[in-house]
């Protein structure tokens, strides 16, 4: 499955780039992320409780940031697995200046396997979009000046 998603964020590119590669921010913003541990240069181990509607599963996985070109782009690879199957995603993240803020374009190839591929495929597209929407909404909150005061 291929996803092409565009989000607007209310902060300059440098800040967005830094936030998107900061494990603490990621842990706060990734929906269902229970733990995000940096276990190497640009490599993180994550424990996720990924839920979509009533369908919820525990996944653990590794995320890697590659081809890092701050503040313009990087490639995020995610390799997650849980009892219902696995998710592997490679996403090119491009950050462009847009007025005061930043436009993030992500082009992701997502591959799933196991039970989720067999019976969850029709949900995958919607679930991935929702997760991405939730993530960027949270990130946007994280980056708005208001949140600094909190």
């Amino acid at each position: 499955m291929h996803l092409h998603l565009i989000y607007q964020l209310p902060a300059p590119r440098e800040r967005v780039f830094a936030a998107m590669t900061d494990p603490a921010v990621l842990q706060r913003c990734i929906p269902g992320c229970e733990q995000m541990i940096k276990d190497g240069e640009d490599s993180y181990e994550a424990h996720l409780q990924v839920g979509f509607a009533g369908l919820k599963g525990k996944y653990r996985g590794r995320a890697r940031v590659e081809d890092r070109r701050p503040p313009e782009s990087y490639t995020l690879t995610v390799d997650g697995k849980g009892a219902p199957g696995f998710v592997r995603a490679t996403s090119r993240m491009c950050l462009g200046e847009k007025g005061e803020g930043t436009e993030v374009i992500c082009d992701a190839d997502v591959q799933i396997g196991g039970v989720i591929a067999a019976v969850g495929s029709r949900l995958l597209d919607a679930a991935a979009r929702k997760m991405a929407d939730d993530f960027f909404r949270a990130l946007s909150r994280e980056l708005t000046p208001m949140s600094a005061a909190q």
């Binding site: 009533g54 369908l55 919820k56 599963g57 009892a83 219902p84 039970v115 019976v119």
Partner: peptide
């Protein structure tokens, strides 16, 4: 069915 496939684990 979702629980039996462990897609749902309430």
């Amino acid at each position: 069915p979702a629980m039996k496939l462990r897609l749902a684990q309430p």
